[in-house]
Amino acid sequence: MIRVEDVDVAYGDLQVLWDVSMEVRESDGVVALVGPNGAGKSTLLKAISGLVPVADGRIELFGEDVSGLSPEGIVKRGFIQVPEARHLFDGMTVEENLRMGAYTRTDDTTETLAAVFELFPVLEERLDQHAGTLSGGEQQMLAIGRALMADPEVLALDELSVGLAPQLVRRTFEAVAELSEELTVILVEQHVDEALRLADRGYVLEKGRIAATGTGKELLESDRVRTAYLG
């Protein structure tokens, strides 16, 4: 579904990614991307999303080279990212935010909206409420719901648990497990153990390079990962 080959990314003179390669296969339910803060995880998602340019290398989405494609073009091809900061339209209602998620679609979105409400019933209860007045957990649910309205084949979630209470963190991981039965999820997450337990495959990114890869189970059992991230 996604192939990243020897990708370099820089912000001006500051290089952030070096020779990064990874794959997301159709059989993957969850692919975890873990590592310390500043390792380049979010930058890698932004490169796949078309939000930052690739200095070198190649990114393929469903067999097509999309390295120079616009973010809108990436969305239309089925890759949707939920950014760490959520970037909701605070002055718009929950319903309006959800409808905005489907702006690239021309088909009927009724079934998709119903599926979002089934996953996050609270959003239906808050339909006329402004997004900026929701709790942190509700805002995260809305950000995911808005992304789902675009009908993605691959959904990238960037640090979905940041700032959430423990019980809400558990609910978001449960939602990821449910979503992975219908589509592929790329999960960038600070809770390394939880992310790898869910993951079919994982990548460890350190200092802008892929430091380790394997199944979620293999990485959980890796001495390197356990020492660095699991205590």
Score class of each variant (00 low, 15 high):
A212D: 10
G145M: 11
E72G: 04
G29V: 02
K46S: 12
A175L: 03
Y229M: 06
D151V: 15
F79I: 13
V185A: 02
H191M: 04
E174N: 06
I59C: 02
L219W: 07
E174T: 09
D6L: 07
T43M: 03
A156D: 03
Y229D: 06
A147G: 08
E153V: 15
G145F: 13
E95W: 15
V4T: 10
L198V: 01
I2C: 05
D19V: 03
Q15W: 15
N37Q: 08
T227G: 00
P36G: 04
Q81W: 11
D28V: 13
D151W: 09
D13W: 14
R209F: 13
G231C: 10
L196C: 00
N37H: 09
E218Q: 09
L17K: 03
D6E: 09
G73M: 10
A102C: 06
G78H: 11
L160I: 14
G208F: 04
R201Q: 02
D56Q: 12
V4C: 02
D151Q: 14
E26L: 03
R197N: 05
E218D: 11
A55H: 15
V154T: 05
V94G: 03
E138A: 01
L17P: 02
A150P: 07
D8W: 13
F62R: 08
E182V: 10
G208T: 01
P36D: 08
G101D: 03
G137N: 13
L45P: 09
E181R: 12
R224E: 04
L183F: 09
S180P: 00
S21P: 11
V34F: 13
W18K: 08
A102W: 09
E125R: 11
A147K: 07
P36N: 06
L119V: 12
T104V: 13
L123P: 04
V192I: 08
H87Y: 14
